[in-house]
Design a protein around this nucleic acid. Structure first.
Length: 637
RNA sequence: GCCGACGUAGCUCAAUUGGCAGAGCAACUGAAUCGUAAUCAGUAGGUUGUAGGUUCGAUUCCUAUCGUCGGCACCA
């Protein structure tokens, strides 16, 4: 394949061609940054810093790097359009991100999303002019002169050493490492999405810049598919569905304090009861600790000093109390209520613990971020030798819930010791991190590392669930705690009759019931599997007088085996009631007419289907019951 | 908390330049008794989030406040 290099020379490139090959054929300065890029069978060239090993990779539009590069180009294109439309604007940073790109800027005049069409038109116009994107390396001094009017770029340059690369396209020049395509023409399928405020350098002490989010793809089809997915996410929004399906509400009298409505309560209690059954079977004891405890306890746990601003406090009889933001101090008081020998360990102590945290007003969001929620918490006290196997048991439990019950895939992250703020010795940290990692590897699981992201008191594993519309949610977490056993002086007696400290683990599966239900609503788009559906069977008598008795008999028979059925005998046509049952996303709509009444039959129609099946009442009820118990009777093997 | 947008009937949304606050669905009443996604007619429903201000007149303009949404920061 022949490519044209930026200096006008051509070069034949074959699969397997390396950067070194390129370097030997062209001028060394240029060779540092040449790469062939194949798109739809056509070859384009672009700049790319030579990797250390000298190996170049021939990229195609299927490679994620290429899409990121296109989006990075798109952010420059946005900046180029902005500088043309709003001269005097100063620029922060503008990277490509997972689903698109953004650019942070200090705009010379305020803009809103209403200005997007105008900006997009300008971007397209600039794109079509195919401005060459030219890389140049300049000295720090020259860079400071070049960007002297832009305080943000100046600040970034001051932190750099050595030569500095800049990219120019038309009237816009950016401080940038690259890489980029050779000209602006590749960006024809982009869309600006939203504006937002973002602190300069991500620090809330700094000024807030205007961030414009957008996305870009190689073709219109992909862009349209992405926009369609955004629509789908909006349709699945748990706040919208929660209202429509009558699951929960949030009142202005209590921002962040969800109210559970009858149907939401059925869903929630179903999840809780299942959780309790599975945990009891897995050797957990269950406790419930008080919502409010005295200030001294929170001083002992350290919350009073570290977390005070987020706690709800109260004074009673001149004594200060705090509402629990976490369950662990309560759990440890329960542990201390008894005297343990090594033979008693591990103690697995579960609690569906309702906690209150005063989250910042701007952080609240539906059920995803609330101020009052229930953690499906458990604390495990074990010997150091038991640590790894206990972690493995927990991961087994997570697998059971996520994969077997909810069919949701996940990624695991191991968060390691923070750089500066940590307690304990390096040796203990290394051992603990290894135990967590080994437990995963021992189960054939891969994980990514989040360096320095552990809590000050210990490393942790985070489980991020991937929902059906491509978003990820952190739910499960296993945290090793090297702090609290010390603070609360937890002990057990070991084989040598010595008083020693147990290892303590915190873990949650659902994370918070509230958030998990929010995730489930969106994951299932409100159409819950039968075992979770608040109403499982909607019974529709064709005639509201002749068929009522049999309809109620069916409801009674369903209730007798624990199924949730409702009769819709409202004075409406069947089609109307069928529609309502579908809108309510009830798993089974059952029509009862003469045929069914006379033959002790039911004609059912599963949710989302137009299929009609007529079977005996008995086999229908058995079928639905089996569907429910197939899940609710599941236990970890 | 910060930046920006928004707040009208139970729900979804209209209301021209500042000039009588409206529709669909839901609810209620009546008729129709109907076999798989909306039967017809009627009735009722509002201190336009709240509190001030400007104005002859405010859903509309201004200020404050509460809340919601998109982000940011936060999530020990």
């Amino acid at each position: 394949m022949i490519i044209t290099l930026p200096d006008g020379k051509t070069m034949n490139l074959k699969a397997g061609t390396t950067g070194l090959d390129v370097a030997t054929q062209i001028s060394p300065s240029l060779a540092k940054r040449v790469l062939a890029y194949a798109l739809d069978g056509q070859l384009f060239d672009l700049y790319w810093p030579i990797p250390k090993d000298g190996q170049f990779k021939l990229l195609t539009d299927k490679d994620p790097e290429t899409l990121m590069m296109l989006r990075h180009d798109a952010s420059h294109l946005l900046a180029q359009a902005i500088i043309a439309l709003y001269p005097g604007t100063k620029f922060g940073v503008g990277p490509a991100i997972d689903e698109g790109f953004y650019y942070d800027m200090d705009l010379s005049q305020p803009i809103s999303e209403e200005d997007f069409p105008r900006i997009e038109t300008k971007m397209l116009e600039l794109s079509k002019q195919a401005f060459p994107i030219v890389r140049k390396e300049i000295s720090k001094q020259d860079a400071l002169t070049l960007f002297k009017d832009d305080p943000y770029k100046t600040e970034m340059i001051q932190a750099l050493t050595g030569t500095i690369s800049i990219y120019t396209q038309g009237a816009f020049t950016d401080l940038c490492l690259g890489p980029h395509f050779i000209n602006t023409s590749y960006n024809q399928n982009f869309k600006l999405l939203t504006t937002a405020g973002a602190y300069w350098r991500g620090d809330s002490k700094n000024k807030q810049l205007t961030r414009i989010y957008g996305t870009a793809f190689f073709n219109k089809k992909d862009l349209d598919a992405y926009v369609a997915m955004l629509e789908e996410r909006k349709k699945r929004d748990h706040r919208k569905l929660g209202k429509e399906l009558g699951l929960f509400m949030i009142s202005d009298y209590g921002p962040g304090f969800p109210f559970w409505l009858n149907k939401g309560m059925i869903l929630r209690k179903t999840l809780e009861n299942f959780w309790i059954d599975v945990h009891r079977a897995a050797g957990y004891q269950l406790v419930q600790t008080p919502t409010m405890l005295s200030k001294e306890l929170w001083e002992t746990s350290g919350h009073w000093f570290n977390y005070r601003d987020n706690m709800y406090v109260s004074e009673v009889d001149e004594k200060e109390y705090a509402i629990k933001p976490m369950n662990c101090p309560g759990s440890m008081l329960v542990y201390k209520n008894e005297f343990y020998s090594y033979k008693d360990l591990p103690i697995r102590m579960g609690e569906l613990g309702n906690v209150h945290r005063h989250e910042a007003s701007g952080a609240l969001s539906g059920l995803f971020r609330v101020r009052n929620f229930t953690q499906d918490d458990a604390h495990i006290y074990c010997t150091p030798e038991q640590l790894e196997s206990e972690v493995r048991e927990i991961v087994k439990l997570f697998d059971f819930f996520y994969k077997k019950v909810f069919h949701i895939d996940y990624d695991v992250y191991l968060s390691t010791r923070p750089e500066n703020k940590y307690i304990g010795t390096l040796e203990t940290w290394a051992k603990s991190e290894k135990a967590l990692g080994d437990a995963l590897t021992g189960m054939g699981k891969t994980f990514k590392i989040n360096p320095g992201d552990g809590a000050f008191y210990g490393p942790k594993l985070d489980f991020k669930l991937k929902d059906s519309v491509g978003r990820t949610w952190q739910c499960g977490t296993v945290q090793l705690d090297m702090n609290n056993p010390e603070r609360f002086d937890l002990t057990y007696i070991n084989e040598k009759n010595e008083k020693v400290r147990p290892v303590m683990l915190h873990r949650v599966v659902y994370g918070s019931l509230e958030r998990f239900i929010g995730i489930l609503i969106e994951h299932y788009a409100g159409a819950f599997p039968t075992w979770l559906a608040p109403v499982q069977i909607k019974i529709l008598p064709v005639n509201q007088s002749f068929h009522l008795d049999y309809s109620y008999a069916l409801k009674k028979a369903a209730a007798a085996i624990g199924l949730r059925a409702e009769v819709d005998a409202s004075n409406e046509k069947l089609g109307y009631r069928i529609r309502n049952a579908q809108v309510e996303k009830v798993p089974y709509s059952v029509v009862i007419g003469d045929k069914e009444r006379d033959g002790q039959l039911v004609t059912y129609r599963p949710y989302g289907s137009e299929e009609q099946v007529t079977i005996s009442m008995e086999s229908f009820l058995q079928k639905v019951q089996k569907e429910v118990t197939d899940i609710t009777h599941l236990r970890i093997e």
